[in-house]
């Protein structure tokens, strides 16, 4: 039986086999993530009964016993974990104390705003970071390289929440270049929901004015969110490009008399890009986390704002829901990146 599975496995085309393998790993990671989030709710010395019932109810032993039974807190830990997993599989992430709605419903509502913000910020960060990184590598150890080094270090050093405030003050309050906080102006109806991303939806439904408005609102938070990632992508691109520029095949391309531009962008960048794509997957996860700070300043109705409000009311279920969903997104993005990597570089398919 094993033999059959094994021989069948090796008859699959390389890319498919690679993808299936990565999918299994991704699924295992997701299970691990639920385990960590379960463990945290257990290990953390806050008593969930105290946290969720409030003082008056918690002082009544009968209510506490009922509560423990209802949520299976009187059972052994493995049983509790099994129950927890079972509920997760049904999409039950508990109830938010703050909104009194299922956490899963809340997440669905808030997710698209964060995804839109992160995608726009990621595009900005990749474009700026790759361009700066290439420039730094080509001018290695000369002044453009040094200047870019300082810029990228500043990018990873600036406190996001502070930059968000300063930018808002300058571009909205002083210069009036930004329309302010939120996703759209007050009273502007949202575009018909297709993807949940306002800019895309406005574009897909052909509403140019709405598209421009959505874009003007997202520009500032996306720019702020992109700073940190730009720094990371810049440094990584520089290292990857230096690595790549030292390769024999880059020298061979120069020996063929190709213009410097072609050598850098076609021959040197391509292998570096594979490494850059990998780091961008990890950077995306960090960006989702950074969204908490940006969203709380710009009242951007996303997962970050939701997590922030939940944290203020110590709403553990809601925050765990957010971390769980972001961890899963992170795993999925990196899974996608791995597969993309295999498509870019034909040598990767084992």
């Amino acid at each position: 039986m094993m033999q059959m599975i094994r021989s069948g496995w090796y008859r699959l085309p390389g890319l498919l086999r690679f993808t299936l393998g990565r999918l299994v790993v991704g699924a295992l990671l997701c299970v691990g993530v639920t385990f960590i989030s379960f463990t945290l709710t257990q290990v953390v010395p806050g008593d969930p009964v105290m946290a969720n019932l409030g003082e008056r109810a918690a002082s009544d032993p009968e209510i506490v016993a009922l509560y423990r039974e209802r949520y299976g807190l009187d059972q052994s830990l493995p049983e509790q974990y099994a129950r927890y997993l079972g509920r997760l599989l049904q999409g039950d992430l508990g109830e938010s104390q703050q909104t009194h709605r299922p956490v899963a419903t809340d997440l669905a509502t808030y997710m698209s705003a964060t995804i839109e913000l992160a995608i726009v910020a990621m595009i900005l960060a990749m474009a700026a970071g790759v361009a700066l990184g290439i420039t730094a590598a080509v001018w290695r150890n000369r002044w453009p390289d040094q200047a870019i080094r300082v810029i990228s270090l500043a990018g990873v050093s600036v406190p996001t929440f502070w930059l968000a405030l300063v930018c808002l003050y300058v571009f909205f309050f002083k210069l009036n270049l930004s329309p302010g906080v939120g996703r759209l102006g007050p009273g502007t109806p949202a575009p018909p929901t297709l993807t949940g991303l306002y800019t895309f939806d406005a574009l897909l439904s052909g509403q140019w004015g709405l598209f421009r408005e959505a874009l003007s609102y997202i520009a500032l938070p996306a720019l702020v969110l992109a700073t940190y990632t730009t720094g990371i992508v810049t440094r990584f691109t520089r290292v990857a490009m230096l690595d790549s520029l030292g390769n024999d095949y880059v020298r061979a391309a120069r020996a063929k008399g190709l213009p410097a531009r072609t050598v850098i962008l076609r021959h040197a960048l391509r292998p570096a890009l594979a490494a850059i794509v990998t780091v961008s997957g990890m950077a995306f996860g960090r960006m989702l986390a950074g969204a908490v700070l940006v969203e709380s300043v710009y009242s951007w109705p996303g997962l970050g704002l939701y997590a922030y409000r939940s944290a203020l009311t110590l709403d553990l279920q809601a925050i765990m829901g957010v971390s769980l969903i972001i961890a899963v997104i992170y795993i999925l993005v990196n899974l996608g990146v791995d597969i993309l990597y295999a498509v870019i570089d034909p040598r990767i398919r084992y």
């Binding site: 990671l29 993530v33 944290a311 972001i326």
Partner: peptide
């Protein structure tokens, strides 16, 4: 690996929410 998969600040928020 698993802890790294979690967004650091949000996981920290969860822990703080539980610890106070």
């Amino acid at each position: 690996d698993l802890v790294l998969a979690f967004p650091d600040i949000i996981l920290a928020m969860a822990v703080v929410a539980a610890l106070g």
